[in-house]
């Protein structure tokens, strides 16, 4: 409970780094209050104030967090406040009724306009990089090309059902663009929030395989491992049903050669990736 209350405060800080909208909302509410604009639509004004207070005060914020269900990040409680409608309402009142008011002194208007411009000129927030895939289209296109090549190779090898193990950037689009391909593990491996959507859990071995694959592009991390460890991981994946393996071309050459020698397979280079296909017999024999 106490921890939850403290986390509400942390969420508030996090939200304010990403966006200054709540600050602008506070200015909008103050402006409407001072200008008497709140009287016209009192219900909306007081509702916004109340929801704002409920989200700010840590104990009520924690209750709201429980209400919205814990699958969402704590900062999502701020979506309950009608931030955009209220700022929009205040902005229209400001533009058409405050600035447009001929009885008001010009100097007074200029001071207020300057204050608003200063607020708008300040940084309005910083995007958290983990939320957004900047080169989404490019990534998806690349993933589709690699998957097409993999499916073609698998078809030539007579594979009907494909279970793929590949780096994150391929796996995250695989189920959208090629739903016929099954994966060794999915997006819920690295996006913990998606665990709420399934009762299935990954084994420790599978998690270790994920860590190995994640570090595979990192040449320095790979060099610390022996090629035996890499082979063990691949054995483990084959046991888990994997029959298609994709490794980034930045992988240590040692690993690629060792797989080729240990598993009697020749890697196919496709753009920035090496592709290995294992037939059903090979999987049974090697695993």
């Amino acid at each position: 409970m106490i921890q939850g209350i403290f986390s509400s405060y942390a969420n508030w800080l996090e939200f304010n780094t990403q966006s200054k909208l709540l600050g602008v909302l506070a200015v909008a509410l103050l402006f409407l209050w001072l200008e008497g604009g709140h009287k016209r639509h009192g219900g909306f004004f007081w509702f916004t104030c109340l929801s704002f207070v409920l989200c700010l005060f840590p104990p009520t914020a924690y209750v709201l967090q429980l209400y919205q269900s814990l699958i969402y990040h704590g900062a999502w409680i701020y979506t309950f406040i009608p931030v955009i409608p209220m700022i929009g309402y205040a902005a229209v009142t400001f533009i058409l009724e405050y600035i447009g008011d001929r009885q008001r002194k010009r100097s007074e208007k200029w001071v207020v306009v300057a204050a608003v411009l200063i607020i708008l000129g300040l940084s309005l927030g910083t995007k958290k990089e983990t939320f957004v895939e900047e080169n989404h289209n490019q990534q998806m296109k690349l993933a589709t090309q690699v998957l097409d090549a993999t499916l073609e190779l698998a078809g030539k090898s007579g594979l009907e059902h494909i279970v793929l193990w590949a780096p994150e950037e391929i796996l995250q689009y695989a189920r959208i663009v090629k739903p016929e391909v099954a994966l060794y593990y999915g997006r819920d491996m690295w996006e913990k929030e998606l665990e709420y959507f399934t009762d299935d859990r990954y084994s420790t071995e599978c998690r270790q395989d994920y860590e190995w694959m994640k570090n595979n592009g990192d040449i320095y991390a790979v060099r610390q491992e022996s090629d035996y460890q890499g082979a063990r991981r691949i054995h483990n994946a084959l046991k888990g049903g994997v029959n298609c393996l994709i490794l980034p071309s930045q992988s240590d050459e040692r690993i690629i050669r060792s797989i080729e020698i240990r598993f009697f397979k020749k890697a196919v280079l496709m753009g920035e990736y090496y592709i290995f296909i294992f037939t059903e017999d090979e999987v049974n024999r090697l695993a």
């Binding site: 279970v163 189920r175 016929e180 060794y184 999915g186 997006r187 959507f197 399934t198 009762d199 299935d200």
Partner: peptide, 12 residues
Amino acid sequence: PTTGGEYLVGAP
């Protein structure tokens, strides 16, 4: 939907 394999336990 994340792996394309049959559910082992299920979904909520």
